[in-house]
Every structure is written in C-alpha cells, then in structure tokens.
Simulated scan of single mutants.
Amino acid sequence: MSLGYPGGDHVDGVLRQWQSAAPDRDASPMALFTRLYRLSKYVDRRVTRVFREHGLHEGEFDLLATLYRSGDARGLTPNALRSAAVLSSGAMTHRLDRLEGAGLIRRTANPEDRRSVLIQLSAAGERLFLDLLDDYLTTLRALQAPLDDTQKQALADALRTLLLPLEATDDV
C-alpha cells in the first residue's frame, strides 16, 4: 500500500491518514520529525554498508576519526576518547581492543602520566581510515545531491537550531 501521492512521500500519506483518523489533533510536527527519523534510517543503512566494506562498525569509525582529527600525533588518552565518543569505559575498552587487534591503533605509555596510556592511529589505521573517509564522504555527497547549495546550508542551519538546545540539556 503506497501512502504517498504523486510528487509526495510516505510521510505525506501518513499525515493524510492522521488527518482522517484524528482530525482534532495537530499532527503537523510529524511532517518534520517523521521525515528526520526515516531519513536517518536510510542514511544509517547506506553509511553502515560503507563501514562494513572496510571491516568496521560506526563506533570504530568514530574512534578512528576522533584520533585522526585531533591532530595530536602523540595520541589521546582513553578518557579523552571516551568523552569524545560518549561511551562507557567497558564499551571503549572493547572497541580499543578490537582496533588494536586489527592493527589499526596502538597503545603507548603516556610520558606525562605513568598510570595512563595514549591511543594512536597506526600507519595501517591511518591508511584504512583515509580510504574509508573518501568512501564515506562520497556516500554523503550522493545522499545530499537532490539539494542545491542554498538548501544544504538552510537545512544544516535549521538542524543546528534544533540540536543546540538538546545538546545543552541532554546526554546522547
């Protein structure tokens, strides 16, 4: 059963159904948030496919990306990584163990704190990350292709406006 209409999408059909089923309720917020939810599902599927093609999961990509973009050749402490990725220490340890086992990162002694280690990208990790980054960015560009530059900027600005108060008051 198609819920859209010519020139419309699934959500247009859902909104028509809500209008018919509950005409006394304003379902208009669904126009935005149901589309965001559905879009996130489609994006997640495509991006997950890219990560899997490179043998990684999203969380592992996130850790490698954090290490790469930190610009600190010495590496980052596990706590700094955990904070950036918003992970529990157990989840962080599991991901680090997997990445280290795959030869993508290395743990080195922290010269500033003997009780701590620094996590660094290995040369193999950097190569894999940059290849993956290229494929990831290509995928994101393809996903945003229906938008012109003005629409891309307006959407990014509007989403930032929605995101800022949530980031200020909520843990992700």
Rank of each mutant, 00 (worst) to 15 (best):
L56E: 02
G125Y: 01
R107P: 04
S40Y: 09
S20T: 13
V86C: 06
A22L: 15
E112L: 13
F51N: 04
L104E: 03
S89K: 13
L81V: 06
R115S: 11
P78Q: 12
D26K: 08
S116L: 14
Q120W: 03
S116W: 10
Y37H: 13
N110E: 09
L104D: 01
A123V: 12
S28E: 15
E53C: 05
I119M: 11
D135I: 03
T93P: 00
A124G: 12
F129D: 01
R98C: 00
E53L: 10
A27F: 13
A27I: 10
G90N: 09
H54E: 06
R38T: 06
N110T: 07
E58A: 15
R38I: 10
P29W: 10
L56Q: 03
L32A: 14
R46N: 09
D97S: 10
L96S: 01
S122F: 06
R46C: 06
L64K: 02
H94R: 13
A102Q: 11
V43R: 14
L133T: 04
D26Y: 08
D72Y: 12
A109N: 09
G59K: 08
F129M: 04
D135Q: 07
T93V: 02
E53F: 04
R46I: 02
D135E: 10
R49V: 01
E126H: 04
L133S: 08
Y136A: 04
E53I: 00
Y68D: 12
R95F: 04
L130C: 06
P29K: 11
L87I: 05
L133A: 10
V43M: 13
H54L: 07
R25L: 15
S70E: 07
G90K: 07
R35N: 10
M92H: 05
T34R: 14
D97I: 00
S20V: 11
L87W: 08
P29I: 11
L118P: 01
T66A: 10
E60D: 10
S83M: 13
V47P: 02
L132G: 01
L133R: 13
T77I: 07
A80V: 08
Y136H: 12
V50D: 01
G103T: 06
R82C: 06
R98F: 00
D62K: 07
L121E: 01
D131Y: 07
T108G: 00
A85I: 01
G125T: 02
A124T: 13
R25M: 14
T108H: 00
I105N: 02
L99D: 03
Y37T: 09
V117D: 08
E100F: 02
L81S: 01
L32M: 15
L96T: 01
R25N: 09
M92P: 03
T48N: 14
S83I: 12
